[in-house]
Design a binder for these strands. Structure first.
Lengths: 186, 186
DNA sequence: CTAACTGTACCGTCTGGACGGTAATGTCAA
DNA sequence: TTGACATTACCGTCCAGACGGTACAGTTAG
């Protein structure tokens, strides 16, 4: 369904994301996005016939990109634990580097919280896979929540965690994978 | 600085929070808030002379309320660990019950991310206190991040966690408080 | 010929905010 | 006690600008 246009579509999406970061999530107007993408407003509306379509496109690409990275990080035949390992590495990498936060999420949320439903659905399935592949449910939940927490801090522009703290957490999460479960009930 | 007005000011704030939940964070207009609060727009502008002032009021009350609850939960003379215990209990309670999420945060974020600076600052200090009162930095960080993660899930309207999962996490977090630290470096 | 635009001109709606007015309550000097 | 004035707490109206979206004629590359 999603075409593999190399230039315009992705340039518009990138411009929208950059604009939400630079100008603030509330300043994400069609005019501003078009200007930033170097495209006329008519051209923007050609690719995304409404603002809702733009938001949906942002969400779609966001999920697809993450899924692709996750899939490529986990080679076939791996154990179920490999998924958790890949998820930890992938998340921490996106957190660690100077990669900017996905501030456009706030734009989508303000426009209509339903735009984020596909993301929630994706995450729900991911958590299920993570849990089913883990011997200790509590530890797996803690890992997932801690990563979610770091994403949240990043998203809200908080710099409460130092690089060393992040490394500590990563070490901790990875080391937990190679331990036997402690009192896993059910 | 913040007066203890019993009716109008707090009614407006409550109306704003309710409206962000019901109509969506992007629909938080002065007109809508005024109507919901049973006040004319002029009346609203009397209490909050600009939309920015409204947002600041929301943030201020949010922090003050949380701080008050935290302070009242921790009696004087308690050990440093009591703060973490109180924080866990307080957070989980606000997560567990049918208490609605603070969706107005998205409105504030869309308007201007700087509105959330006081919240980040408050949280930063809280984390410092939490860490300084903890023997095992990694465990304390994990606890903080896991709670942050649960807050994030709630805020984004995700229901990935069941009530049992939340109870499991709470048990885990509290049990961690009564254990000796494992390989605390530095 | 067609797809992929550009550019311009609009339109209706919503929004923050300014403004003037007003009723009630309080203050205080003569 | 009373009259003059000040403050508080609003109400109702108005407006300029921004916004999403439409319409359409023209242009350019394959």
């Amino acid at each position: 369904m999603s075409g593999n246009r190399p230039s315009s579509r992705s340039r518009i999406l990138a411009a929208a994301a950059a604009l939400a970061r630079d100008a603030g999530p509330g300043r994400l107007s069609l005019d501003a996005v078009a200007a930033r993408a170097g495209v006329s407003k008519g051209g923007l509306l050609y690719h995304f016939p409404s603002k809702a379509a733009l938001m949906a496109g942002l969400v779609e690409d966001y999920i697809a990109e993450f899924e692709a990275k996750l899939d490529s990080a986990i080679t076939e035949g791996d154990t179920e634990e490999a998924l958790m390992k890949a998820y930890i590495a992938l998340s921490l990498k996106s957190l660690d580097e100077k990669q900017p936060p996905a501030s456009w999420i706030f734009s989508a949320m303000a426009e209509d919280p339903d735009f984020l439903k596909p993301v929630n659905e994706f995450r729900r399935k991911l958590l299920q896979r993570l849990l089913s592949g883990s011997a200790d449910r509590t530890k797996a939940l803690m890992a997932y929540l801690a990563i979610e927490g770091m994403h949240s801090l990043k998203l809200f522009g908080s710099d409460q965690l130092s690089g060393e703290d992040r490394d500590m957490i990563e070490d901790h999460l990875l080391s937990q994978l190679n331990e036997q479960p402690t009192s896993s009930r059910q």
